[in-house]
């Protein structure tokens, strides 16, 4: 009986080793996508300044080069931002850029013109016209993105440029997702 147990154990070990031999590369294969991180760390030109109104926030789609696993889009929408324009008294343009993704759980934040508030349609988080959280479950203000107005180009046009980033949702502090 002992010999039988030994032989069966040996067979089980052999079988487990074979299983491991396939499972280990398999797990590496499954985890492969986690190794790939591609962010946009340069400024992306998103809209002419003239298209940004000072009266109300403008929603602008960010179009950039995008690698989606094996597919390469040379110009694809990677997200959207809210632009808030408030020029200074000497007409120097100033633009503030807010992420449209709700810091609570990531739905797209809308602007309600009548009440002049940003509202997340999913869990009713509300933010004031400058993006400050004032009602609902969001643990922080709307995420601000680094943004600038380009010097005039050869035709005198000026552009809004943004460093597009996304942040971890559901936490009180801003943690960039690379």
């Amino acid at each position: 009986m002992q010999r039988r147990t030994f032989i069966l154990a040996l067979a089980a070990i052999i079988n487990s080793l074979m299983g491991a031999m396939v499972a280990m590369p398999g797990i590496r294969f499954l985890l492969d996508p986690l190794r790939r991180k591609r962010g946009h760390d340069e400024f992306i030109r998103i809209t002419p300044l003239s298209a940004v109104s000072a009266d109300r926030p403008s929603r602008v789609t960010v179009v950039a080069d995008r690698w989606d696993a094996f597919v390469h889009h040379s110009a694809a929408p990677i997200g959207a931002v809210w632009l808030l324009r408030s020029d200074s008294e000497n007409d120097e343009p100033r633009v503030k850029c807010l992420q449209t993704i709700c810091p609570h759980l990531g739905c797209g934040i809308d602007f309600v013109a009548g009440r002049r508030v940003f509202v997340c349609p999913c869990h009713a988080s509300e933010f004031d016209a400058a993006g400050k959280a004032q009602y609902g479950p969001s643990l922080r203000d709307m995420d601000e993105l680094e943004c600038r107005v380009s010097p005039p180009d050869e035709n005198g046009g000026r552009w809004v440029e943004v460093k597009y980033q996304e942040f971890k949702t559901g936490v009180p502090d801003r943690r960039p997702l690379i």
């Binding site: 010999r3 039988r4 032989i7 069966l8 040996l10 067979a11 052999i14 079988n15």
Partner: peptide, 10 residues
């Protein structure tokens, strides 16, 4: 039967 199992594994 145990030898059978072992040989199958081999």
């Amino acid at each position: 039967s145990s030898i059978q199992t072992l040989i199958q594994a081999f």
